[in-house]
Amino acid sequence: MEALTLLQWVFDSLLVLCLFWLAGRALASPDLFKAIVLFIAFGLLMALAWVRLDAPDVALAEAAIGAGLTGALLLAALARLKSMGDLYRDDSDCGETKGDDS
């Protein structure tokens, strides 16, 4: 019994550390794709944390919505941002050449 509680303590501490690390990395990552993947991993570990807190309902919702669908939505938004970014970059290139001419 003692060993089991010790193991749970170790597991919980590792989980919390991993969550903080993933959250920090996701926020600090300059590469948006990487940040989204880190966010999905964060969501999955968060679901595990909810299970540890005896909240299986929230864990299910977190795994399905937080990690799964939000990740898909963010990736779709990123794909759109990129195609829009190309559009804007073309515009700004035009502006710069004009500026050089004058």
Binding site: D57, L60, G68
Partner: peptide
């Protein structure tokens, strides 16, 4: 998940998000 929600963890939001994942 929808059916089991009445007596165990599960329910509309979880079932709906799984359905949404199928759609995605």
């Amino acid at each position: 998940l929808l059916w089991v929600g009445t007596h165990a963890p599960g329910g509309a939001f979880q079932a709906g998000s799984v359905l949404g994942a199928a759609g995605v």
